[in-house]
């Protein structure tokens, strides 16, 4: 079989006319969920941008608001569960939070596509039909043409004998192949942005490697931007160009991938990197650990959300929430002591 070498991050040439203008700009996004015990402030004032063709990773543990952020962008927060209560989501300058439902439906799938952790396919319909349906929902295509394009995209994502397999039902596919089919469905309309929410978490590690490579390959050939949502700092290292770390519904740090791993400025990022199990480096019997558990987002701590678990927390941290500080080239951290402090070497 094949031995490959992971490539250095490919650089996508940006069209001069759109240069400098972000593809997606999220400003002060706030999303709340209802729960029996109160309002959960899942996303609490998050801002970020993605440029055309860029790969941005959003990293955090469960309940940090990373998935809620993605769902908010696409207007997919179920009505009975919660709602976006503030902020703007500017996609090429158009605020997705205030456009009409019909317009949002046009953008969804066509310009912005999403894949989820669990391969979400309709169990009673052929894979090929499901992909052609997405195509026909947005393009004036005959059934025949749509089917042919579906087959073409199944081939592109590495399904062998695609013409034949398009006639299969989801249960005839393995987990890895279902995820490939979903990627085919997501990219079939050549979206400008692909949001991937934990796309490999349910997969075995060798299959995960295949899917990640496939995503980068598809991005290379179609030139789309990717918003990767994950809890796994390992995946991010080899996949993303920029990383944003979330904790307790807020952005705590944002940096180009290399400087985040080399000089983490927020104690949470630093702790997360330290307690991640890894294959290389010195084996330590005991891992450095972050004590305690993430905060409740119903009544979050005043001041810095991480203060109750932070080994460096001081009075100031418990009293006021730190603003995002510029701590390096495109590197920002929300910590009162981010500048100048070295939390330790990663």
């Amino acid at each position: 079989m094949r031995q490959t070498t992971s490539q250095a991050q490919p650089t996508v040439t940006v069209d001069a006319s759109t240069a400098g203008r972000p593809l997606l700009e999220v400003r002060d996004l706030r999303t709340e969920y209802r729960s029996p015990s109160g309002i959960v402030r899942a996303v609490d004032g998050v801002s970020f941008t993605i440029n055309p063709g860029e790969v941005l990773a959003v990293v955090g543990e469960s309940g940090c608001g990373k998935t809620a952020t993605a769902l908010s962008i696409l207007g997919l927060i179920p009505r009975h569960a919660g709602q976006v209560v503030g902020g703007q989501v500017l996609f090429e300058g158009e605020d997705l939070l205030s456009v009409r439902a019909e317009r949002l439906r046009q953008i969804r799938g066509d310009r912005i596509a999403m894949i989820f952790q669990e391969p979400t396919l309709d169990p009673v319909r052929r894979i090929g039909d499901q992909i052609s349906e997405v195509l026909r929902a947005h393009r004036a295509l005959s059934h025949h043409d749509a089917w042919n394009q579906a087959v073409e995209f199944l081939g592109l994502v590495g399904i062998p004998r695609a013409a034949e397999r398009a006639r299969d039902y989801p249960h005839q596919f393995s987990g890895g192949m279902r995820q490939r089919a979903l990627i085919a469905m997501a990219v079939a309309l050549r979206p400008d942005l692909l949001i991937a929410d934990e796309p490999t978490t349910a997969l075995d590690v060798t299959i995960q490697a295949q899917i990640l490579e496939l995503l980068l390959e598809v991005r290379r050939s179609l030139g789309m931007a990717i918003l990767l949502i994950t809890h796994d700092l390992g995946i991010v290292a080899g996949f993303a160009e920029r990383v944003m770390v979330m904790y307790g519904g807020r952005k705590v740090e944002e940096a180009p991938v290399r400087s985040l791993y080399r000089q983490p400025k927020h104690p949470y990022t630093w702790g997360l990197l330290g307690c991640t199990t890894r294959l290389d480096g010195n084996r330590r019997d005991r891992l450095p650990q972050i004590t305690g558990a993430p905060p409740s987002l119903i009544s979050p701590p005043t001041g810095c959300r991480f203060a109750p678990r932070c080994p460096h927390a001081q009075e100031l941290c418990r009293a006021s929430y730190p603003a995002l500080l510029e701590v390096g080239d495109r590197h920002r951290a929300a910590c009162h002591f981010a500048e100048g402090e070295e939390w330790g070497s990663s």
């Binding site: 075995d204 295949q210 791993y261």
Partner: peptide, 26 residues
């Protein structure tokens, strides 16, 4: 192959790493 598929949380290592990506499934 299994070892090679485990990501390492270090962008410098990931860029230089020689990786075996298995084809096909179990």
């Amino acid at each position: 192959a299994l070892l090679s598929a485990v990501p390492v949380p270090d962008p410098d290592v990931e860029v230089k790493r020689r990786r075996i990506v298995l084809q096909g499934e179990v």
